[in-house]
């Protein structure tokens, strides 16, 4: 638990908080990007190089841009919210607390289940690749199918709109 770790944690938390507390929606999206970057740094701090760089490549390079595009194309970014807290904040708080409790229990239970190791296992990209096409090939193919379906769906939706405007 070094100084760098606390710094990264502070950055991630600040990004996450800013993502829900800021008024301007695009600012929220950019703060979310900072939170993603913090997560990537945490991965790198754990020596998970592939996960960290894939996080930057996918989340910051694609998901963040997707979020920003979605905001831009579905609402006028001029209109800023009146208040950032919704009316049903109590229900939201309860649900968030519940999800946090479940996740926390799962993480702690798994830490107890794993044997205590002096050093973290060094996982190279080669190992990840082997495991992906060996033991976890079924989830890989399902994810690929899901992505294909999503892409085809997007193309069909866009095609319909093009035909309607013609």
């Amino acid at each position: 638990m070094s100084f760098a770790f606390y710094l990264i944690v502070a950055l991630t938390l600040a990004g996450g908080l800013a993502a829900v507390l800021l008024r301007n929606t695009v600012h929220c999206a950019l703060a979310l990007t900072v939170a993603f970057a913090g997560l990537a740094l945490l991965f790198l701090g754990l020596d998970a190089q592939f996960a960290g760089f894939a996080q930057i490549l996918v989340y910051i390079g694609a998901v963040a841009i997707l979020v920003v595009f979605a905001i831009l194309l579905t609402r006028s970014s001029e209109a800023e919210q009146e208040g950032v807290f919704s009316k049903s904040w109590l229900v939201g708080l309860v649900i968030a607390a519940g999800v946090f409790a479940v996740l926390g229990w799962a993480v702690l239970a798994s830490a107890r289940a794993l044997p205590w190791q002096a050093a973290a296992p060094i996982v190279t990209v080669r190992d990840i690749g082997n495991v992906l096409v060996g033991r976890y090939v079924l989830p890989l193919e399902i994810v690929a199918l899901l992505l294909t379906a999503a892409t085809i769906g997007a193309v069909i939706v866009a095609l319909h709109e093009k035909e309607r405007t013609r």
Partner: peptide
């Protein structure tokens, strides 16, 4: 060890700055 992945990750970050500049 994953230098190439790092390079592409940095390249992807430039897209975000282009969008920020334009918006």
């Amino acid at each position: 060890d994953s230098g190439l992945l790092f390079f592409f990750a940095m390249g992807a970050s430039t897209e975000l700055s282009v969008f920020m500049a334009g918006w």
